[in-house]
Amino acid sequence: MFTETLLVSIQQPSASQDYMGWIFQVIWILAFIIVWIYGQRIQTTLMLKEIEGSLSKLKAMRDRSRQITISAIKEIGKPNEDPTARIDRLLEHVDIEPVSLDPTGIIRRLEHIIDVREFRFKDEVRQMAPQADETQINNLTNVLEAALALNQIYKIVRHYYLMGKKTLSFYIILQIQMLLPLIMRESEAFANAIKAFTLGQPIGDGAGALVAARLMHGREKRLISKDTIVSEVDIDGRKAYVIKAVGPGGNVGKPGEAIRQILEEKEGRVALI
């Protein structure tokens, strides 16, 4: 009797362990089946949630940049009427690149489009900010362009997000999710640049412009191309041509055109560029 009781007490834990083992095995099999069948759908949902969070941040940056642009134009330009409607229209501006199937002259055509775009933006800013001087016009134009870039980034990401959400295409969603870190860094750079443009601060360290200005100091300067000046400087017994944008303000000038002009003036007799 004692032996039978001992055997029963020994066998009971073993049966309980087998029962729990079967439960865990069934759970593992069910989890494996769910992941096998719905794994991609689950991963797609998680990626969509991540994209949705980044899209909300992009929207906040877009709206904040728009508000900064409106405030800057009102504060600096002292417009006679509310510029909000015109700014909203400019933020929807889209440039259409030239056809690249025939590469002949594509750089010239692209440069023409960029020049027309720059002229159009500055003209619009002059009308919205009649009290702004030329330096402030350049800065406000850069503010508007940065806000435009943020608006375009937000719309492109939103377009692919909605397309991926509608079609549940894993590869469309995967591409956006993989590019999001770079897109967010670029957007944050634009958002920070807007603050710098509003305050008239340089982008980057500004070392190049400072060095060129120091070399030009006290020497004759002449306008060689649009918004670009040049000065002849003697460096270690050699004649050098220092080129920089007119400044101040957000203006890069046309250094390529300036170099071409110098090469034509010197008939190609230039040792080093």
Results as ranks from 00 to 15, higher is better:
P130N: 10
P98W: 09
E265D: 08
D95M: 05
R108I: 07
Y38Q: 13
V252R: 11
H112M: 06
G218V: 04
T69F: 10
I113W: 15
I137P: 08
R219M: 02
N139M: 08
D133Y: 11
V26K: 03
D82L: 07
I224Q: 10
I113Q: 15
A207Q: 07
Q131P: 00
Q127H: 15
T3H: 10
V99C: 08
I33V: 14
T69D: 11
K254V: 14
T69P: 05
L210W: 12
P103E: 08
W28R: 09
T45Q: 11
Y154H: 15
Q261Y: 02
R260Y: 14
A209M: 08
Q40R: 09
H217G: 07
M128Q: 03
R222P: 02
Q17S: 11
Q43F: 01
Q12D: 00
E188F: 06
I273Y: 10
M128A: 09
R109Q: 13
I156T: 12
E97Q: 11
D95L: 14
A31D: 02
I235A: 00
E145N: 14
G218M: 11
V230W: 04
K266P: 01
I27E: 11
E264Y: 07
A191T: 05
V211I: 11
K239S: 06
R89C: 05
D123A: 07
K195Q: 15
Q201K: 03
Q25A: 12
K74C: 03
Q17L: 14
Q25W: 07
L144H: 02
R214G: 13
I51W: 05
A191K: 08
Q136N: 05
P103T: 03
L162R: 12
T141A: 07
V99E: 05
Y160R: 10
R86N: 09
E188K: 09
P13K: 02
E124C: 02
V35I: 09
L110G: 13
P103G: 09
